Simulated scan of single mutants.
Amino acid sequence: MPLRYVDPHKKRGRSYARSARFGRSPVGQFIARHIARRTDPYLFRLTGGRVNMGPVINAPLVSTGAKSGQKRQVQLTYFNDGPDVILIASNFGGAKHPQWYHNLKAHPECEFGDEPFTAQQVTDPDEYARLFSLAERIYPGYRDYRAKTAPTGRTIPIFRLVPR
């Protein structure tokens, strides 16, 4: 099953906006953190990536553990920038980077949606600003996460996954 192309420039309707607004609410955040992260991997496999719990499309990232060397899987929201996949390491606006960030830094070879990629962290400030702006079009909650991380001094990392 090929990875779905998520165009950040695509117009999204009112139901998408309502779903995103709910996703940013305290109840929506609870569901995303505690329920969807456990059910979305099963929905992805059962439906070929056509169904997930929230308004944004997600897929499984399989990376190699930074310390353990074991395979690790996590379901992540993404969008495309040409043939590349873009991942935002927001960790729901937490003070620390998500574990998968450390895994990709240590072992950039990964699979996303059952396709092979090489991860590259975006470090160019102009490219970072452009991609973060596109991410906010996919899910406006990224704006909230950036505001939550600002007091801690954490900059939310962005990864570009380049097909192998």
Score class of each variant (00 low, 15 high):
A119K: 00
H97C: 10
P116V: 12
G65C: 11
H9Q: 12
R12C: 12
P108G: 01
D7S: 10
G69Y: 02
V27H: 03
F44N: 05
D114P: 00
I35N: 08
G93V: 11
D114R: 14
Q99R: 02
R18D: 08
S90D: 06
V122F: 06
P140C: 11
A89K: 01
P83R: 13
R38H: 15
F79W: 12
T47H: 11
T118N: 04
Q70V: 14
K71W: 04
E115C: 05
R72Q: 15
V62R: 13
T39Q: 09
N103R: 07
P116W: 05
G82I: 05
L43I: 13
Y16W: 14
A59R: 03
M53I: 13
Q70M: 10
K105Q: 11
N103A: 08
R33D: 05
Y16E: 06
Y5T: 15
D7K: 11
P98G: 11
L134Q: 15
H97M: 08
G49M: 03
L43T: 08
T64W: 00
M53P: 02
H107C: 05
D124E: 14
Q29F: 01
P60I: 09
L76H: 06
F112K: 10
A129C: 03
L134E: 14
G48E: 11
V85F: 03
F132D: 06
F30K: 11
E111R: 14
F30C: 09
R14P: 11
D126F: 04
I88Y: 04
L131N: 01
R50V: 07
A135Q: 02
A59S: 13
E127G: 12
D114F: 07
P26R: 12
Y142G: 02
E115H: 05
G54V: 07
